[in-house]
Simulated assay, not measured.
Amino acid sequence: MFFIIKFWKEISNIISFLANICVLVITVYTLYLTAFCRKLRFITIGFSMTQFFGESMSISIANKSLHAISITEIFIMKKKDGQFYRITIKKFEDPLIINPWQISNIKMDAYTYILEESGERFDHSDIHMNSVIGINTGTENMVWLKPYKKAPRMQAERAYKKRDYKEFVVIRKSYGDKTLSESVKYVISLKNTDINGNMSWETIFAIPLEKSILLNKTICGYNAINYSGKTSCGKLKKIICKQFGIDSDAIFIEKI
């Protein structure tokens, strides 16, 4: 009986020791996640386009630490033909704060198209391939994320540190505060007067097609104008006056 009691005491001591080790490991790991870890996880890269207001890319990332992480800049380093090219997704005047275990979708400002060094349009279909995501957290240590397992992270990091990279040119065709698609060719301004006699101008963007002109807003309930042939500001103005009965003084059209 004495030996059995002694044996169980030894087992209890071992279990207690292992439990203390586990608590210590959990405590240290929790401290690491809370105070030191800068762990961000890549979720996905998205691409979107609209008929009138350009294209955009977005990157979704998750904060896997137990403290908030600030981001001042996020960009893509893409390797093509042995050369790295940088595409800036977003720079923040005030840091973006991603809270613990939060997923954040960071969207690039709309653009018309991206131009490669060769003068060709950038193809979004292979944006993941040979690409690495760089994240500036406002500290000396950058965070690098791989969209897939074999992404050239070390090469991208080395090229960034040595500034051995070029930048794709982001083209933005703008009107006021709007970034437009390349297919938008005309801006139609219509003068409106409310029942109180207050005057305002409504801006409508137009895309000439083969047999019609597509509008981003309706004119008298129509979002397209029937027309085929070469278009000009003068012709478009006459068509609108004729089809919708709008006075010519209430229409201003410019080509962009």
Rank of each mutant, 00 (worst) to 15 (best):
residue 232 S to E: 05
residue 231 T to I: 14
residue 149 K to E: 10
residue 202 E to V: 15
residue 209 L to V: 12
residue 144 W to H: 02
residue 227 Y to T: 07
residue 133 I to H: 02
residue 177 D to V: 13
residue 219 I to Y: 10
residue 204 I to G: 07
residue 195 I to K: 12
residue 154 M to G: 03
residue 222 Y to E: 14
residue 203 T to H: 13
residue 150 K to A: 13
residue 190 L to P: 03
residue 174 S to E: 13
residue 160 Y to G: 01
residue 163 R to E: 14
residue 127 I to D: 05
residue 140 E to Y: 14
residue 166 K to W: 10
residue 203 T to V: 15
residue 226 N to M: 12
residue 128 H to Q: 11
residue 133 I to G: 05
residue 214 L to D: 03
residue 153 R to I: 07
residue 225 I to A: 00
residue 184 V to F: 01
residue 131 S to R: 04
residue 112 T to K: 03
residue 230 K to P: 06
residue 147 P to H: 04
residue 207 I to E: 07
residue 115 L to W: 01
residue 160 Y to C: 05
residue 143 V to G: 03
residue 180 L to Q: 00
residue 230 K to C: 07
residue 166 K to P: 08
residue 143 V to H: 09
residue 120 E to K: 09
residue 188 I to S: 04
residue 129 M to Q: 15
residue 125 S to W: 10
residue 146 K to M: 10
residue 203 T to W: 10
residue 205 F to N: 11
residue 193 T to A: 01
residue 222 Y to H: 15
residue 125 S to Q: 13
residue 117 E to C: 05
residue 159 A to V: 02
residue 214 L to Q: 12
residue 189 S to Y: 09
residue 130 N to D: 15
residue 211 K to A: 11
residue 225 I to G: 02
residue 171 I to F: 05
residue 217 K to P: 06
residue 235 K to S: 11
residue 171 I to H: 04
residue 165 Y to H: 08
residue 206 A to S: 13
residue 203 T to Q: 14
residue 233 C to P: 08
residue 201 W to G: 06
residue 188 I to M: 06
residue 190 L to M: 02
residue 200 S to C: 09
residue 125 S to A: 13
residue 182 E to C: 03
residue 180 L to D: 00
residue 202 E to C: 09
residue 229 G to M: 10
residue 212 S to H: 14
residue 117 E to M: 07
residue 216 N to H: 07
residue 119 G to M: 04
residue 222 Y to N: 14
residue 156 A to K: 01
residue 215 L to P: 12
residue 173 K to R: 12
residue 193 T to W: 01
residue 118 S to P: 07
residue 209 L to Y: 13
residue 154 M to E: 13
residue 211 K to C: 11
residue 143 V to R: 04
residue 145 L to Q: 05
residue 183 S to M: 01
residue 138 G to N: 05
residue 210 E to I: 13
residue 128 H to D: 12
residue 111 Y to I: 09
residue 174 S to T: 15
residue 134 G to K: 01
residue 132 V to R: 00
residue 228 S to Q: 12
residue 202 E to M: 12
residue 210 E to A: 14
residue 169 V to W: 02
residue 186 Y to I: 03
residue 144 W to M: 01
residue 169 V to K: 06
residue 129 M to E: 14
residue 232 S to C: 09
residue 180 L to E: 00
residue 150 K to T: 15
residue 204 I to C: 08
residue 159 A to R: 10
residue 235 K to R: 15
residue 183 S to F: 01
residue 118 S to G: 06
residue 127 I to T: 08
residue 112 T to S: 13
residue 158 R to V: 08
residue 182 E to R: 10
residue 187 V to S: 02
residue 150 K to V: 09
residue 229 G to V: 08
residue 122 F to V: 04
residue 196 N to S: 14
residue 153 R to Q: 10
residue 221 G to Q: 04
residue 228 S to I: 07
residue 188 I to H: 11
residue 173 K to W: 03
residue 119 G to V: 04
residue 187 V to G: 02
residue 216 N to V: 04
residue 111 Y to C: 08
residue 186 Y to K: 11
residue 179 T to S: 04
residue 133 I to L: 05
residue 236 L to C: 11
residue 127 I to A: 03
